[in-house]
């Protein structure tokens, strides 16, 4: 099966969100997609990137490499892997957020990863060569 591949490396910063969105636009530009699936892909990408931006490097700075692949035949599955060199951390092990009124006023943890998981067809984490690698898959049609 032929696939289109692309790689982007940016600073782990919310300021790079537009660059990541543009990268995803470019990645899926040549394949048909269901509008809702596209929205959900964007959401999963934002939630994971922002999670890395906010937490991977603590008070320090670092980079994120985004590796994208899209199959060139139905269901045009998009695979996006996010790599960072922050402390080993598997966000998929976090408990779902508690959104009850008494709790949410203090801190809502895990909401982004909860949504990323919900919006993806598959999501997985591995620690590889000193890097956190979080990978999502989404069928575009």
């Amino acid at each position: 099966m032929s696939e289109k591949e692309a790689v982007l490396t940016v600073a782990a910063s919310d300021d790079e969100m537009d660059a990541v969105n543009a990268f995803i636009d470019m990645l899926v530009a040549d394949v048909p997609f269901d509008e809702e699936a596209r929205t959900q892909l964007d959401m999963a990408v934002e939630e994971i990137f922002v999670n890395i931006s906010h937490y991977a490097y603590g008070e320090g700075t670092g980079q994120v490499t985004v590796r994208g692949r899209v199959a060139q035949e139905p269901p045009y599955t998009v695979t996006v892997a996010f790599e960072d060199e922050g402390l080993a951390f598997n966000p998929l092990e976090k408990k779902p957020p508690d959104l009850t009124p008494a709790v949410r006023r203090h801190k809502i943890g895990g909401l982004g990863i909860f949504l990323a998981r919900s919006m993806s067809d598959e999501i997985g984490y591995e620690r590889r060569q000193g890097k956190n690698v979080l990978t999502i898959r989404k069928k575009m049609v």
Binding site: D42, M43, V50, R104, L111, G112, F114
Partner: peptide, 12 residues
């Protein structure tokens, strides 16, 4: 057409 967790937090 798009609300992420950042938008959910705005509403909360």
């Amino acid at each position: 057409d798009y609300v992420s967790s950042a938008g959910i937090r705005v509403m909360m």
